[in-house]
Design a binder for these strands. Structure first.
Length: 354
DNA sequence: AAGGCGGGGAA
DNA sequence: TTCCCAGCCTT
């Protein structure tokens, strides 16, 4: 512990009570709703997650409602929020809580941690906010606030860093109102001690903040740099049959977008032309029981869909067919499937008249 | 310990 | 462009 700061939590909470945003999950301690909000906000900004939270609470007011929903419905409602394993784990955990725990969430850190999709942060958040347990959360905001305030240069995305900051947060937490303390330090990081150009001149802590005193605010927190992103090349085969049907497939196995739907996909190592496309074994399989009348390229210039760890250089090939194949879906129903944003954007542009 | 996993907002 | 967001899981 770098220094004794007996008033840290008092000052922080006082700031929070004056400056906190009025968010729907702050008007409840219901563990189902707290859990739902915390899962949604993992690696996700409040303003991005908020509309999804409202949709989910309306569609599934109780954990039993979520548990009884088809997985496809849950994924469809989650569409656009990203990190879809969160939605799959959310649904699986709802079933466990509903069917094996009598609809009652665990009321302590250790048992919460056993739930799918619930890690150290989320278990601490639920334990403190719903059950008043003194469990400190450490999210991206907490790393930033503590590394600056105490001038700690330990890289935050390493095991020693995680341990050090967790221990420090645990020492600082207000044991009388742990939930309020946790939300206060996160809100302070999100709204005041921001990553770029924080307003240190007007900060409530600028007389004791080590980073400010030593002019190291821009250097903290320290984070090991991520590896460069990989380029991938996607060729989607958009079937357009005479009677306005197309083909959708569900993604299985590992990798991105598990259990979401997309058009038949041929991934290549580089950009290809139409004759190269037709020579791929996957294309031959695809076209076996299909009566293809014409193939055209929708976008000459690839759409570059950017994920945090890969760039998807994507071209859509329009495959007009005169016969109906099995496993086709009416184009008018495509909008009912959970699809990646990359597909949703294409669909809304190309199928807007269907 | 390292890598994979989305999408979007802000500077 | 780059950074990073109320992180977690698998290998």
């Amino acid at each position: 512990m770098p220094k004794k700061v007996p008033h840290f939590s008092k000052i922080l909470i006082a700031w929070y009570l004056q400056n906190k945003r009025d968010l729907p999950w702050r008007n409840t301690t219901n563990p189902y709703r707290i859990w739902l909000s915390e899962i949604m906000l993992q690696q996700t900004r409040v303003l991005q997650g908020l509309p999804y939270y409202l949709k989910f609470v309306e569609a599934y007011p109780k954990v039993e409602d979520l548990a009884n929903a088809p997985e496809d419905d849950v994924l469809k409602l989650w569409q656009g929020l990203g990190y879809y394993s969160r939605a799959r784990n959310l649904h699986a955990t709802a079933k466990i809580v509903s069917e094996e725990m009598n609809g009652t969430f665990p009321n302590n850190y250790n048992d919460l941690l056993k739930l799918k999709g619930v890690g150290d942060y989320t278990a601490s958040a639920i334990a403190s906010i719903s059950f008043n347990q003194p469990e400190a959360v450490v999210d991206g905001n907490v790393y930033r606030v503590l590394s600056r305030y105490f001038g700690i240069p330990t890289p935050i995305n390493t095991t020693p860093g995680q341990k050090e900051f967790k221990q420090l947060a645990q020492q600082l937490i207000d044991k009388k109102e742990p939930g309020t303390f946790n939300q206060a330090i996160m809100e302070f990081g999100a709204r005041f001690c921001v990553p770029q150009s924080p307003d240190c001149g007007n900060c409530i802590f600028n007389d004791s903040c080590v980073a400010f005193q030593q002019k190291k605010v821009t250097e903290l927190p320290v984070k090991i740099k991520a590896k460069p992103v990989k380029n991938r090349f996607f060729n989607y085969l958009v079937v357009l049959s005479e009677n306005e049907r197309t083909i959708l497939q569900q993604r299985t196995g590992k990798g991105i977008w598990q259990k979401l739907y997309e058009f038949p996909l041929i991934e290549t190592s580089e950009e290809i032309n139409i004759s190269e496309l037709q020579n791929f074994p996957q294309f031959r399989t695809f076209s076996e029981n299909l009566n293809i009348e014409n193939i055209s390229l929708f976008n000459e210039k690839p759409v570059i869909h950017k994920l945090s760890h890969q760039h998807l250089n994507t071209r859509f090939w329009i495959v007009e067919t005169s016969e109906e194949k099995e496993n086709t879906v009416p184009i008018s129903e495509v909008k009912n499937y959970a699809v990646p944003v990359l597909i949703a954007d294409f669909v809304s542009e190309f199928f807007e008249n269907y």
